[in-house]
Design a protein around this nucleic acid. Structure first.
Length: 262
DNA sequence: ATGTCCATTTTCAATGGA
């Protein structure tokens, strides 16, 4: 199974790039964030035409998540429980793939704006809710993938210059602790299972020629339960998508999971 | 150098979010 995550920053603008990406990379499950499209306008037919089922949760102007999948979902759920969140930031599906039943949770975690802002407080509460959700899900299903835009760079080598960005959003100790709380539920960062190029990032600000100068952050992640860890053959960031004309500010992250041939 | 891109409304210009 080939699975990927991509914050597209408007699915309307990026639809052709997404279709092209699915085709070129033989992706089975693609998790999208910042679709910025209302549910009535979701382009499910474009995906249906090339063999994908679509599951989506959108809103006007901001946020919005979706999963397009060659596998049908046997159980789909939307958002954090208890009406905690009016913003559309989470969708999950359960699929029956060739490596068994897997719960895929696609997240667009809050950005936080600035340390100690209201939005930062919301980010902290949001992660606490998410941690609870994942914890409960793990009781039901030991094959789980938590995937998406976390808006957290978990370690110093996930940041172009930690001295310049220390104690700011994406890198603060509090945020890293929130990330590690998820990891400690029994998940592993697929990207760090492998040796990776130095200065690997998944998001570059549109401003300041950041991409050209590789001023980036690795904030898009694929976390796997330990049961899936041994099946992960590859995890990589596809930087080529950031080089396109009218790119998203994020590049996709791809993981390949399969049984080893005996 | 508060530098760009996107969506929306305030609509050919400004605003908020990232």
């Amino acid at each position: 199974m080939n699975i990927a995550t991509w914050n597209v920053n408007s699915l309307r603008i990026r639809l052709n790039q997404v279709l092209n990406f699915l085709d070129k990379n033989d992706i089975d499950v693609l998790c999208l964030q910042e679709t910025k499209i209302t549910d009535d306008k979701f382009p499910y037919e474009s995906f249906k035409n090339i063999g994908y089922n679509s599951y989506w949760l959108g809103q006007k102007t901001f946020n919005g998540v979706a999963i397009v999948s060659r596998y049908e979902s046997v159980r789909t759920s939307y958002n954090l429980p208890d009406n905690f969140d009016e913003q559309k930031r989470l969708i999950s599906i359960t699929i029956r793939s060739e490596i068994g039943e897997i719960c895929v949770i696609c997240v667009y975690c809050p950005n936080g704006q600035m340390i100690d802002s209201e939005k930062y407080e919301y980010k902290i509460k949001w992660f606490e809710k998410l941690t609870n959700l994942v914890k409960n899900e793990l009781l039901k299903n030991d094959q789980l993938i938590l995937i998406g835009d976390y808006n957290i760079a978990p370690n110093d080598d996930d940041v172009y210059n930690i001295e310049l960005s220390k104690n700011q959003i994406l890198t603060s100790e509090t945020e890293r602790k929130l990330f590690n709380n998820l990891v400690h539920l029994g998940l592993v960062d697929a990207f760090r299972l492998f040796e990776q190029p130095k200065n690997s990032y998944s998001w570059w600000d549109y401003r300041k020629y950041s991409f050209k100068r590789n001023i980036g952050f690795r904030i898009d992640h694929i976390l796997l339960t330990n049961s899936l860890r041994g099946l992960c053959q590859v995890c990589k960031i596809d930087k080529s998508l950031r080089e396109f004309e009218r790119p998203s500010d994020h590049a996709p992250v791809i993981a390949i999971l399969k049984h080893k041939l005996t």
